[in-house]
Amino acid sequence: MKIAQKQNNDITIFNIDGDIDINSSPEMREAFEGIASAKTMKIVVNLSNVSYVDSSGLATLVEMLKKTRSYGAKLRLASLAPKVKSLFEITKLEQLFDIFDTEEEASANF
């Protein structure tokens, strides 16, 4: 898994490249710790290069959301592949997360 971060004004874009599964989700959690400990208020997680997520990946994304909510920040997901998006729908996690088709749309009107 490759993780990259960039700034778009006051929005942190968290780019994930690769599968988010039982073996790689701890790495994502650890990388996100830095963003959360800096109390970053606006975060977009770009999943355009993620074609596979398992239940531990979903759990880690939920943890990330809970963490950002704990200090009043907002986290949005962008560019989910159709099968990945379907997992959010099946598990009703689309009720929990703000999900956008593109990074640009996610970054607008925070």
Partner: peptide, 10 residues
């Protein structure tokens, strides 16, 4: 919904 785990069997 905010459970950390428990979605595998589902």
């Amino acid at each position: 919904l905010l459970m950390g785990s428990g979605r595998g069997v589902f």
